[in-house]
C-alpha cells in the first residue's frame, strides 16, 4: 500500500433480536459513537461505504434507506457491498490510497431475526442447480463438518457434542473509522495500522472444493503477509470452521478470538475487535479474518499492528 491506513475508531451493537428499532434506528447510535470517539462528524469523512443485504430486511434498496443514519447532505462519496462489512472495509482501504481522501467510515448492519436466515442465505447459491433446492445454511455447514470428520485430520470433532449448532441469528450493527498516516495519528494515540489486507474466493460449486481446508484463506493470508502474528481474531459462523481457519493461517499457540456475530456484520466486527486488541496492547501484530458465503467460500485476511507507522 502506498499510503498507511489505520483503524482509528469503532463501535458495535449486537443482540439476539432487536424487535423495536429498525435498521436506521439501530445503526445511528453506533455510527455516532464511532465518529464521536475521535471527535468527528460525517462532514469530516472522505469516503463512506457499507455492507448489508436487502434480502435480510425484506425490501429493496434498504441499503439506501440506511444512509439516513449517516446524514448524506451535502452529497457524500459513498458505496455499498452486498456482503459482510469487512469487504466494504477492503474497498475503503483501496479508496484511501487516493490523494485527497484521508478518512473513511465503514459500517454494516443486519436484522435477520425478522426473517428466515437459514433460507435467505440460500439465495447466495448457484441459482440453477443449488438454490432451487433451498439448502439451509446449517445443512451446508454440516457437509463441511462431516467432510472434516471423515478426513481424519480433525479428531477434535469426533464424539458426541460436536454437532453443528443452529445458524447464529443475531441483529446488530458495527461502524469503523479509518484514517491515513498523520491524520490517523492526529485522531488517536493508538491507531491500529493495516499492514496488509487481501481477500480470495473459491468456486461456488461445493463439490469442486476441498471443504476440509481453506485454500482462499491461505492465499489471502499469503498476499496480506499474515506471518509472525501474536493473536488472531477469526470470523467463525460455525464452530468447526475455526479448526479449518487455524490450519489455513498456520496458527499454533497464539490466542484466538472467534465469533460469528450477526450475518453481514460479524466479519467487520472481528476486524474492529482486532483493532481494539492492538490498540489496547493485547496484541502487537494481529491477524483478523472475515468470511462470506457457504462453508467459508470467500475469506478476507488483514494484518493489524500497533505502534507507529513505518
Amino acid at each position: 500500500m502506498r499510503r498507511d491506513v489505520a483503524i482509528v475508531s469503532w463501535a458495535s451493537f449486537e443482540t439476539p433480536s432487536e424487535p423495536a428499532r429498525n435498521e436506521v434506528e439501530m445503526l445511528l447510535p453506533v455510527i455516532q459513537e464511532a465518529l464521536g470517539n475521535v471527535g468527528m462528524t460525517q462532514q469530516d469523512i472522505g469516503f463512506t461505504v457499507s455492507g448489508s443485504s436487502d434480502y435480510l430486511q425484506g425490501f429493496p434498496f434498504a441499503f439506501v434507506g440506511a444512509l439516513d443514519a449517516v446524514g448524506a447532505w451535502p452529497p457524500i462519496r459513498e458505496s455499498h457491498v452486498e456482503m459482510d462489512g469487512a469487504f466494504a472495509l477492503y474497498e475503503a482501504v483501496n479508496v484511501l490510497q487516493e490523494e485527497g481522501i484521508d478518512t473513511a467510515l465503514v459500517y454494516a448492519f443486519a436484522r435477520p431475526s425478522r426473517g428466515e436466515l437459514d433460507r435467505t442465505l440460500a439465495l447466495q447459491l448457484d441459482p440453477y442447480a443449488v438454490a432451487p433446492l433451498w439448502p439451509d445454511a446449517r445443512g451446508l455447514a454440516g457437509l463441511q463438518a462431516q467432510a472434516m470428520k471423515d478426513s481424519g485430520r480433525y479428531p477434535q470433532l469426533l464424539g458426541a457434542g460436536h454437532e453443528v449448532p443452529p445458524t447464529v441469528v443475531a441483529d446488530g450493527a458495527v461502524a469503523v473509522v479509518l484514517a491515513v498516516g498523520d491524520r490517523a495519528r492526529e485522531l488517536t494515540k493508538t491507531p491500529a495500522w493495516i499492514r496488509g489486507i487481501d481477500h480470495r474466493i473459491e468456486p461456488p460449486a461445493l463439490g469442486v472444493r476441498d471443504l476440509t481446508t481453506s485454500a482462499s484463506t491461505t492465499a489471502a493470508a499469503a498476499k496480506a503477509g499474515a506471518t509472525g502474528v501474536d493473536a488472531a481474531w477469526l470470523h467463525v459462523p460455525y464452530p468447526h470452521q475455526e479448526l479449518v481457519l487455524r490450519a489455513a493461517l498456520s496458527l499454533v499457540d497464539q490466542p484466538v478470538y472467534s465469533a460469528a456475530g450477526p450475518v453481514m456484520v460479524g466479519g467487520l466486527a472481528q476486524l474492529a475487535a482486532a483493532a481494539a486488541g492492538v490498540a489496547g496492547g493485547k496484541a502487537r501484530r494481529a491477524v483478523a479474518h472475515a468470511t462470506s458465503g457457504p462453508c467459508l467460500q470467500q475469506n478476507l485476511v488483514a494484518v493489524l499492528e500497533g505502534g507507529d507507522a513505518a
Binding site: D118, R119, W134, D136, L143, Q146, V164
Partner: peptide
C-alpha cells in the same frame, strides 16, 4: 462423499 442430517426441513 459427505452428508448432514436435516431433521427439520423448511
Amino acid at each position: 462423499t459427505t452428508w448432514s442430517w436435516n431433521a427439520t426441513p423448511v
